[in-house]
Nucleic acid binder design. Structure first.
Lengths: 202, 202
DNA sequence: ACCTTCGTGGCAGAATCTGCCACGAGGCAG
DNA sequence: CTGCCTCGTGGCAGATTCTGCCACGAAGGT
Protein backbone atom coordinates (compact mmCIF):
# COMPACT_ATOMS: atom_id res chain seq x y z
CA UNK A 1 0.00 0.00 0.00
CA UNK A 2 1.53 3.28 -1.12
CA UNK A 3 0.83 6.77 0.13
CA UNK A 4 -2.84 7.69 0.22
CA UNK A 5 -2.66 9.89 -2.86
CA UNK A 6 -6.25 10.63 -3.70
CA UNK A 7 -6.03 12.90 -6.69
CA UNK A 8 -2.52 13.90 -7.72
CA UNK A 9 -1.78 12.43 -11.16
CA UNK A 10 1.68 11.02 -10.54
CA UNK A 11 4.23 9.69 -12.99
CA UNK A 12 2.67 6.36 -13.92
CA UNK A 13 2.75 5.14 -17.49
CA UNK A 14 -0.94 4.40 -17.17
CA UNK A 15 -1.73 7.86 -15.81
CA UNK A 16 0.26 9.46 -18.60
CA UNK A 17 -1.73 7.68 -21.29
CA UNK A 18 -4.92 8.61 -19.53
CA UNK A 19 -3.99 12.27 -19.29
CA UNK A 20 -2.86 12.38 -22.91
CA UNK A 21 -6.13 10.89 -24.06
CA UNK A 22 -8.03 13.34 -21.88
CA UNK A 23 -6.29 16.35 -23.35
CA UNK A 24 -6.61 14.97 -26.86
CA UNK A 25 -10.32 14.42 -26.33
CA UNK A 26 -10.80 17.95 -25.04
CA UNK A 27 -8.92 19.48 -27.97
CA UNK A 28 -10.90 17.37 -30.41
CA UNK A 29 -14.12 18.56 -28.80
CA UNK A 30 -13.08 22.22 -28.94
CA UNK A 31 -12.15 21.88 -32.58
CA UNK A 32 -15.52 20.39 -33.41
CA UNK A 33 -17.34 23.03 -31.35
CA UNK A 34 -15.54 25.80 -33.20
CA UNK A 35 -16.20 24.21 -36.58
CA UNK A 36 -19.86 23.27 -36.24
CA UNK A 37 -21.14 24.97 -33.10
CA UNK A 38 -21.70 23.49 -29.65
CA UNK A 39 -25.30 22.43 -30.23
CA UNK A 40 -24.49 20.69 -33.51
CA UNK A 41 -21.89 18.40 -31.99
CA UNK A 42 -22.94 15.30 -30.07
CA UNK A 43 -20.88 13.38 -27.57
CA UNK A 44 -20.89 10.52 -30.08
CA UNK A 45 -19.28 12.83 -32.65
CA UNK A 46 -16.52 13.79 -30.26
CA UNK A 47 -15.93 10.17 -29.33
CA UNK A 48 -15.74 9.11 -32.95
CA UNK A 49 -13.20 11.84 -33.72
CA UNK A 50 -11.16 11.20 -30.58
CA UNK A 51 -11.45 7.41 -30.97
CA UNK A 52 -12.79 6.67 -27.53
CA UNK A 53 -16.03 5.17 -26.25
CA UNK A 54 -18.82 7.45 -25.03
CA UNK A 55 -18.57 5.74 -21.68
CA UNK A 56 -14.95 6.80 -21.43
CA UNK A 57 -15.82 10.37 -22.38
CA UNK A 58 -18.03 10.66 -19.33
CA UNK A 59 -15.21 9.35 -17.18
CA UNK A 60 -13.01 12.20 -18.39
CA UNK A 61 -15.67 14.89 -18.16
CA UNK A 62 -18.72 15.13 -15.96
CA UNK A 63 -20.74 16.38 -18.90
CA UNK A 64 -20.44 17.65 -22.43
CA UNK A 65 -20.74 21.14 -20.99
CA UNK A 66 -17.83 20.36 -18.69
CA UNK A 67 -15.39 20.27 -21.61
CA UNK A 68 -15.97 23.98 -22.10
CA UNK A 69 -15.03 24.74 -18.51
CA UNK A 70 -11.61 23.12 -18.82
CA UNK A 71 -9.72 26.27 -19.91
CA UNK A 72 -11.32 28.25 -17.10
CA UNK A 73 -10.26 25.62 -14.60
CA UNK A 74 -6.72 25.82 -15.87
CA UNK A 75 -6.73 29.61 -15.60
CA UNK A 76 -7.95 29.50 -12.02
CA UNK A 77 -5.23 27.01 -11.20
CA UNK A 78 -2.75 29.53 -12.60
CA UNK A 79 -4.08 32.11 -10.18
CA UNK A 80 -3.97 29.72 -7.25
CA UNK A 81 -0.35 28.78 -7.92
CA UNK A 82 0.62 32.39 -8.35
CA UNK A 83 -0.94 33.37 -5.05
CA UNK A 84 0.56 30.42 -3.24
CA UNK A 85 4.00 31.41 -4.51
CA UNK A 86 3.77 35.11 -3.81
CA UNK A 87 6.27 36.77 -1.43
CA UNK A 88 5.18 36.59 2.17
CA UNK A 89 5.33 40.32 2.81
CA UNK A 90 3.29 41.43 -0.17
CA UNK A 91 -0.11 42.88 0.77
CA UNK A 92 -3.24 41.17 -0.51
CA UNK A 93 -4.27 43.78 -3.10
CA UNK A 94 -0.82 43.65 -4.68
CA UNK A 95 -0.95 39.85 -4.79
CA UNK A 96 -4.33 39.97 -6.46
CA UNK A 97 -3.19 42.57 -8.96
CA UNK A 98 -0.13 40.59 -9.96
CA UNK A 99 -2.18 37.40 -10.22
CA UNK A 100 -4.73 39.05 -12.50
CA UNK A 101 -1.91 40.51 -14.56
CA UNK A 102 -0.35 37.11 -15.01
CA UNK A 103 -3.72 35.76 -16.05
CA UNK A 104 -4.03 38.64 -18.50
CA UNK A 105 -0.72 37.73 -20.10
CA UNK A 106 -2.01 34.21 -20.58
CA UNK A 107 -5.20 35.44 -22.20
CA UNK A 108 -3.33 37.79 -24.53
CA UNK A 109 -1.02 34.97 -25.59
CA UNK A 110 -3.93 32.68 -26.41
CA UNK A 111 -6.14 35.40 -27.74
CA UNK A 112 -7.26 33.72 -30.96
CA UNK A 113 -8.04 30.41 -29.38
CA UNK A 114 -9.90 31.88 -26.39
CA UNK A 115 -11.77 34.19 -28.73
CA UNK A 116 -12.97 31.27 -30.80
CA UNK A 117 -14.10 29.49 -27.66
CA UNK A 118 -15.91 32.61 -26.50
CA UNK A 119 -17.75 32.74 -29.81
CA UNK A 120 -18.81 29.13 -29.31
CA UNK A 121 -20.29 29.99 -25.93
CA UNK A 122 -22.04 33.10 -27.25
CA UNK A 123 -23.63 31.14 -30.10
CA UNK A 124 -25.08 28.42 -27.90
CA UNK A 125 -28.30 29.13 -26.04
CA UNK A 126 -27.40 26.48 -23.46
CA UNK A 127 -24.02 27.98 -22.62
CA UNK A 128 -24.68 31.70 -22.86
CA UNK A 129 -26.12 31.90 -19.39
CA UNK A 130 -23.79 30.84 -16.65
CA UNK A 131 -20.53 30.23 -18.45
CA UNK A 132 -18.76 33.49 -17.98
CA UNK A 133 -16.61 34.49 -15.10
CA UNK A 134 -15.15 32.65 -12.16
CA UNK A 135 -17.60 30.45 -10.23
CA UNK A 136 -18.02 31.30 -6.53
CA UNK A 137 -16.29 28.09 -5.53
CA UNK A 138 -13.06 29.31 -7.06
CA UNK A 139 -13.46 32.63 -5.32
CA UNK A 140 -13.61 30.79 -2.03
CA UNK A 141 -10.42 28.99 -2.97
CA UNK A 142 -8.61 32.25 -3.68
CA UNK A 143 -9.88 33.76 -0.45
CA UNK A 144 -8.63 30.75 1.49
CA UNK A 145 -5.22 30.98 -0.16
CA UNK A 146 -4.91 34.65 0.69
CA UNK A 147 -5.94 34.00 4.27
CA UNK A 148 -3.39 31.19 4.52
CA UNK A 149 -0.63 33.61 3.53
CA UNK A 150 -0.78 35.44 6.83
CA UNK A 151 -2.02 32.59 8.92
CA UNK A 152 -5.42 34.10 9.59
CA UNK A 153 -7.74 31.41 10.74
CA UNK A 154 -11.47 31.83 11.14
CA UNK A 155 -13.96 33.27 8.73
CA UNK A 156 -12.80 35.83 6.17
CA UNK A 157 -14.11 39.36 6.55
CA UNK A 158 -16.55 40.73 4.01
CA UNK A 159 -13.89 43.19 2.93
CA UNK A 160 -11.64 40.31 1.93
CA UNK A 161 -14.41 38.49 0.12
CA UNK A 162 -15.44 41.65 -1.67
CA UNK A 163 -11.91 42.46 -2.74
CA UNK A 164 -11.36 39.04 -4.27
CA UNK A 165 -14.76 39.14 -5.93
CA UNK A 166 -14.00 42.58 -7.35
CA UNK A 167 -10.68 41.37 -8.69
CA UNK A 168 -12.16 38.49 -10.64
CA UNK A 169 -15.06 40.68 -11.70
CA UNK A 170 -12.73 43.33 -13.09
CA UNK A 171 -10.84 40.60 -14.89
CA UNK A 172 -14.05 39.21 -16.37
CA UNK A 173 -15.07 42.61 -17.73
CA UNK A 174 -11.61 43.19 -19.17
CA UNK A 175 -11.56 39.68 -20.64
CA UNK A 176 -14.82 40.36 -22.41
CA UNK A 177 -13.80 43.76 -23.76
CA UNK A 178 -10.41 42.45 -24.85
CA UNK A 179 -11.77 39.47 -26.76
CA UNK A 180 -14.19 41.79 -28.50
CA UNK A 181 -11.21 43.73 -29.75
CA UNK A 182 -12.10 46.97 -28.05
CA UNK A 183 -8.82 47.61 -26.31
CA UNK A 184 -5.65 49.22 -27.59
CA UNK A 185 -3.20 48.48 -24.79
CA UNK A 186 -4.74 45.39 -23.18
CA UNK A 187 -2.43 44.76 -20.25
CA UNK A 188 -2.26 48.41 -19.26
CA UNK A 189 -6.03 48.58 -19.35
CA UNK A 190 -6.29 45.43 -17.28
CA UNK A 191 -3.98 46.88 -14.65
CA UNK A 192 -6.02 50.04 -14.55
CA UNK A 193 -9.27 48.15 -14.14
CA UNK A 194 -7.95 45.80 -11.47
CA UNK A 195 -6.42 48.75 -9.64
CA UNK A 196 -9.93 49.83 -8.64
CA UNK A 197 -10.07 47.05 -6.05
CA UNK A 198 -7.47 48.93 -4.02
CA UNK A 199 -9.98 51.59 -3.09
CA UNK A 200 -12.24 49.25 -1.16
CA UNK A 201 -9.69 48.47 1.55
CA UNK A 202 -10.22 51.68 3.49
CA UNK B 1 -55.76 41.34 -36.66
CA UNK B 2 -54.88 43.02 -33.38
CA UNK B 3 -51.71 44.86 -32.42
CA UNK B 4 -48.53 42.94 -33.01
CA UNK B 5 -47.97 42.15 -29.33
CA UNK B 6 -45.16 39.65 -29.30
CA UNK B 7 -44.53 38.95 -25.65
CA UNK B 8 -46.57 40.97 -23.18
CA UNK B 9 -48.93 38.69 -21.25
CA UNK B 10 -52.11 40.71 -21.56
CA UNK B 11 -55.44 40.29 -19.84
CA UNK B 12 -56.77 37.28 -21.67
CA UNK B 13 -58.67 34.58 -19.84
CA UNK B 14 -56.49 32.03 -21.57
CA UNK B 15 -53.28 33.83 -20.65
CA UNK B 16 -54.42 34.08 -17.04
CA UNK B 17 -54.96 30.36 -16.78
CA UNK B 18 -51.64 29.73 -18.39
CA UNK B 19 -49.79 32.04 -16.02
CA UNK B 20 -51.54 30.61 -12.98
CA UNK B 21 -50.56 27.11 -14.00
CA UNK B 22 -47.01 28.23 -14.63
CA UNK B 23 -46.62 29.75 -11.18
CA UNK B 24 -48.32 26.77 -9.56
CA UNK B 25 -45.96 24.43 -11.36
CA UNK B 26 -42.92 26.41 -10.27
CA UNK B 27 -44.05 26.48 -6.64
CA UNK B 28 -44.75 22.77 -6.74
CA UNK B 29 -41.27 22.16 -8.10
CA UNK B 30 -39.63 24.32 -5.42
CA UNK B 31 -41.52 22.48 -2.70
CA UNK B 32 -40.38 19.12 -4.01
CA UNK B 33 -36.80 20.33 -4.41
CA UNK B 34 -36.73 21.54 -0.82
CA UNK B 35 -38.28 18.33 0.46
CA UNK B 36 -36.28 15.73 -1.44
CA UNK B 37 -33.37 17.57 -3.05
CA UNK B 38 -32.99 18.73 -6.64
CA UNK B 39 -31.36 15.54 -7.92
CA UNK B 40 -34.00 13.29 -6.37
CA UNK B 41 -36.89 14.99 -8.15
CA UNK B 42 -37.66 14.18 -11.77
CA UNK B 43 -39.66 16.26 -14.17
CA UNK B 44 -42.24 13.50 -14.11
CA UNK B 45 -42.56 13.93 -10.33
CA UNK B 46 -43.17 17.64 -10.69
CA UNK B 47 -45.73 17.07 -13.43
CA UNK B 48 -47.58 14.48 -11.38
CA UNK B 49 -47.75 16.84 -8.38
CA UNK B 50 -48.72 19.86 -10.49
CA UNK B 51 -51.13 17.82 -12.61
CA UNK B 52 -49.73 18.77 -15.98
CA UNK B 53 -48.12 16.81 -18.80
CA UNK B 54 -44.32 16.68 -19.08
CA UNK B 55 -44.70 18.19 -22.52
CA UNK B 56 -46.41 21.18 -21.01
CA UNK B 57 -43.74 21.53 -18.35
CA UNK B 58 -41.15 22.12 -21.05
CA UNK B 59 -43.37 24.73 -22.61
CA UNK B 60 -43.35 26.64 -19.33
CA UNK B 61 -39.64 26.18 -18.60
CA UNK B 62 -36.74 25.64 -20.95
CA UNK B 63 -35.33 23.04 -18.62
CA UNK B 64 -35.69 21.58 -15.17
CA UNK B 65 -32.77 23.76 -14.13
CA UNK B 66 -34.65 26.76 -15.46
CA UNK B 67 -37.23 26.52 -12.67
CA UNK B 68 -34.50 27.37 -10.17
CA UNK B 69 -33.63 30.55 -12.05
CA UNK B 70 -37.15 31.93 -11.82
CA UNK B 71 -36.69 33.84 -8.53
CA UNK B 72 -33.46 35.35 -9.81
CA UNK B 73 -35.22 36.50 -12.95
CA UNK B 74 -37.90 38.13 -10.87
CA UNK B 75 -35.31 39.87 -8.73
CA UNK B 76 -33.49 41.24 -11.76
CA UNK B 77 -36.78 42.50 -13.12
CA UNK B 78 -37.26 44.34 -9.81
CA UNK B 79 -33.93 46.05 -10.36
CA UNK B 80 -34.74 46.92 -13.95
CA UNK B 81 -38.05 48.49 -13.00
CA UNK B 82 -36.47 50.41 -10.16
CA UNK B 83 -33.78 51.83 -12.42
CA UNK B 84 -36.25 52.69 -15.13
CA UNK B 85 -38.35 54.60 -12.61
CA UNK B 86 -35.52 56.45 -10.89
CA UNK B 87 -35.49 60.28 -10.88
CA UNK B 88 -33.80 61.70 -13.95
CA UNK B 89 -31.28 63.77 -12.06
CA UNK B 90 -29.99 61.06 -9.77
CA UNK B 91 -26.39 60.00 -10.54
CA UNK B 92 -25.73 56.41 -11.57
CA UNK B 93 -24.05 55.24 -8.35
CA UNK B 94 -26.97 56.48 -6.30
CA UNK B 95 -29.43 54.71 -8.59
CA UNK B 96 -27.48 51.49 -8.28
CA UNK B 97 -27.26 51.81 -4.51
CA UNK B 98 -30.98 52.37 -4.13
CA UNK B 99 -31.74 49.51 -6.50
CA UNK B 100 -29.53 47.11 -4.55
CA UNK B 101 -31.11 48.32 -1.32
CA UNK B 102 -34.58 47.63 -2.66
CA UNK B 103 -33.44 44.17 -3.70
CA UNK B 104 -32.01 43.68 -0.23
CA UNK B 105 -35.38 44.48 1.33
CA UNK B 106 -36.97 41.85 -0.86
CA UNK B 107 -34.39 39.26 0.17
CA UNK B 108 -34.81 40.04 3.85
CA UNK B 109 -38.57 39.72 3.53
CA UNK B 110 -38.30 36.31 1.88
CA UNK B 111 -35.34 35.17 3.89
CA UNK B 112 -36.60 31.71 4.88
CA UNK B 113 -37.80 30.79 1.45
CA UNK B 114 -34.70 32.05 -0.36
CA UNK B 115 -32.52 30.35 2.21
CA UNK B 116 -34.20 27.03 1.56
CA UNK B 117 -33.73 27.49 -2.16
CA UNK B 118 -30.07 28.34 -1.60
CA UNK B 119 -29.64 25.11 0.35
CA UNK B 120 -31.16 23.20 -2.55
CA UNK B 121 -28.59 24.70 -4.90
CA UNK B 122 -25.71 24.05 -2.55
CA UNK B 123 -26.70 20.40 -2.14
CA UNK B 124 -26.89 19.68 -5.85
CA UNK B 125 -23.65 19.03 -7.69
CA UNK B 126 -25.30 20.08 -10.94
CA UNK B 127 -26.41 23.46 -9.64
CA UNK B 128 -23.56 24.45 -7.34
CA UNK B 129 -21.42 25.73 -10.18
CA UNK B 130 -22.96 28.51 -12.16
CA UNK B 131 -26.14 29.30 -10.25
CA UNK B 132 -25.07 32.13 -8.05
CA UNK B 133 -25.07 35.75 -8.92
CA UNK B 134 -26.45 37.74 -11.77
CA UNK B 135 -25.68 36.39 -15.26
CA UNK B 136 -23.74 38.76 -17.56
CA UNK B 137 -26.76 39.18 -19.78
CA UNK B 138 -28.65 40.87 -16.98
CA UNK B 139 -25.68 43.07 -16.27
CA UNK B 140 -25.84 44.23 -19.87
CA UNK B 141 -29.51 44.99 -19.39
CA UNK B 142 -28.81 47.13 -16.32
CA UNK B 143 -26.01 48.94 -18.11
CA UNK B 144 -28.29 49.68 -21.03
CA UNK B 145 -30.99 51.01 -18.71
CA UNK B 146 -28.54 53.30 -16.96
CA UNK B 147 -27.24 54.56 -20.27
CA UNK B 148 -30.77 55.21 -21.47
CA UNK B 149 -31.38 57.44 -18.43
CA UNK B 150 -29.11 60.17 -19.75
CA UNK B 151 -29.54 59.43 -23.40
CA UNK B 152 -26.01 58.26 -23.98
CA UNK B 153 -25.86 56.27 -27.14
CA UNK B 154 -22.91 54.22 -28.24
CA UNK B 155 -20.86 51.73 -26.30
CA UNK B 156 -20.73 51.97 -22.50
CA UNK B 157 -17.36 52.82 -20.98
CA UNK B 158 -15.50 50.22 -19.00
CA UNK B 159 -16.01 52.36 -15.91
CA UNK B 160 -19.76 52.02 -16.32
CA UNK B 161 -19.56 48.28 -16.92
CA UNK B 162 -17.28 47.84 -13.94
CA UNK B 163 -19.51 49.86 -11.65
CA UNK B 164 -22.59 47.81 -12.49
CA UNK B 165 -20.64 44.59 -12.19
CA UNK B 166 -19.30 45.67 -8.80
CA UNK B 167 -22.79 46.53 -7.61
CA UNK B 168 -24.23 43.10 -8.39
CA UNK B 169 -21.07 41.46 -7.10
CA UNK B 170 -21.34 43.27 -3.78
CA UNK B 171 -24.97 42.23 -3.60
CA UNK B 172 -24.08 38.61 -4.30
CA UNK B 173 -21.51 38.54 -1.50
CA UNK B 174 -23.95 40.18 0.90
CA UNK B 175 -26.73 37.83 -0.18
CA UNK B 176 -24.53 34.84 0.58
CA UNK B 177 -23.39 36.13 3.97
CA UNK B 178 -26.90 37.13 4.93
CA UNK B 179 -28.48 33.78 4.08
CA UNK B 180 -25.75 32.09 6.08
CA UNK B 181 -26.91 34.11 9.06
CA UNK B 182 -23.67 35.96 9.58
CA UNK B 183 -25.02 39.48 9.64
CA UNK B 184 -26.51 41.46 12.49
CA UNK B 185 -27.90 44.50 10.70
CA UNK B 186 -28.41 43.17 7.18
CA UNK B 187 -29.58 46.24 5.31
CA UNK B 188 -27.00 48.51 6.90
CA UNK B 189 -24.31 46.04 6.00
CA UNK B 190 -25.62 45.82 2.45
CA UNK B 191 -25.51 49.59 2.08
CA UNK B 192 -21.98 49.65 3.40
CA UNK B 193 -20.84 46.96 0.98
CA UNK B 194 -22.55 48.47 -2.03
CA UNK B 195 -21.15 51.87 -1.13
CA UNK B 196 -17.71 50.63 -2.20
CA UNK B 197 -18.69 50.96 -5.84
CA UNK B 198 -18.68 54.71 -5.42
CA UNK B 199 -14.92 54.79 -5.19
CA UNK B 200 -14.36 53.50 -8.69
CA UNK B 201 -15.87 56.52 -10.39
CA UNK B 202 -12.80 58.72 -10.04
C1' DA C 1 -73.45 30.17 -34.36
C1' DC C 2 -69.09 29.59 -37.06
C1' DC C 3 -64.34 29.91 -37.63
C1' DT C 4 -59.78 30.90 -36.05
C1' DT C 5 -56.28 30.86 -32.62
C1' DC C 6 -53.64 28.55 -29.45
C1' DG C 7 -52.65 26.02 -25.14
C1' DT C 8 -52.56 21.25 -23.85
C1' DG C 9 -51.45 16.30 -23.88
C1' DG C 10 -49.76 12.17 -25.94
C1' DC C 11 -46.28 9.87 -28.72
C1' DA C 12 -41.88 8.92 -30.78
C1' DG C 13 -37.23 9.87 -30.88
C1' DA C 14 -32.68 12.04 -30.08
C1' DA C 15 -29.26 12.98 -26.73
C1' DT C 16 -27.08 13.09 -22.18
C1' DC C 17 -25.55 10.59 -18.31
C1' DT C 18 -24.99 6.47 -15.04
C1' DG C 19 -24.56 1.68 -13.07
C1' DC C 20 -22.82 -2.68 -14.07
C1' DC C 21 -19.71 -6.11 -15.81
C1' DA C 22 -15.95 -8.23 -18.48
C1' DC C 23 -11.56 -7.65 -20.81
C1' DG C 24 -6.86 -6.42 -21.00
C1' DA C 25 -2.79 -3.59 -20.21
C1' DG C 26 0.02 -1.49 -16.56
C1' DG C 27 2.18 -2.19 -12.09
C1' DC C 28 3.95 -4.78 -8.16
C1' DA C 29 6.02 -8.29 -5.49
C1' DG C 30 8.44 -12.77 -5.15
C1' DC D 1 10.64 -13.52 -15.30
C1' DT D 2 6.16 -15.03 -13.67
C1' DG D 3 2.02 -14.66 -11.42
C1' DC D 4 -1.28 -11.68 -9.22
C1' DC D 5 -3.46 -7.26 -8.37
C1' DT D 6 -4.97 -2.72 -9.90
C1' DC D 7 -7.49 -0.03 -12.76
C1' DG D 8 -8.61 2.21 -17.20
C1' DT D 9 -11.49 1.01 -21.04
C1' DG D 10 -15.52 -0.41 -23.79
C1' DG D 11 -20.01 -2.29 -24.35
C1' DC D 12 -24.74 -2.64 -22.70
C1' DA D 13 -29.05 -1.46 -20.55
C1' DG D 14 -31.62 1.94 -18.44
C1' DA D 15 -33.17 6.42 -16.48
C1' DT D 16 -33.82 11.12 -17.56
C1' DT D 17 -34.10 15.36 -20.04
C1' DC D 18 -35.71 17.73 -23.97
C1' DT D 19 -37.88 18.40 -28.73
C1' DG D 20 -40.76 17.81 -33.04
C1' DC D 21 -45.15 16.49 -34.50
C1' DC D 22 -50.08 16.00 -34.45
C1' DA D 23 -54.85 15.96 -32.73
C1' DC D 24 -58.21 17.66 -29.41
C1' DG D 25 -60.72 21.17 -27.18
C1' DA D 26 -61.35 25.55 -24.95
C1' DA D 27 -60.85 30.67 -25.58
C1' DG D 28 -61.65 34.61 -28.59
C1' DG D 29 -63.31 37.11 -32.44
C1' DT D 30 -66.80 37.91 -36.29
Amino acid sequence: MAEPEGSGPITGLRDLKRERNRVLTAETAWRLFIQRGYDNVTVADICAAAEIAPRTFHRYFASKEDVIGEPLRYMTSLVSEHIAGAPAGMPDPAVLRSAMHKLGVFVVEHRDWLGALRTVIQNSAHLREGHQGVPPEREQEIIALLAARHGTSGEPSWQQRLQVAYAVTAFRIWHDEFLRGKVLDPLAQLDEMVATIELTSS
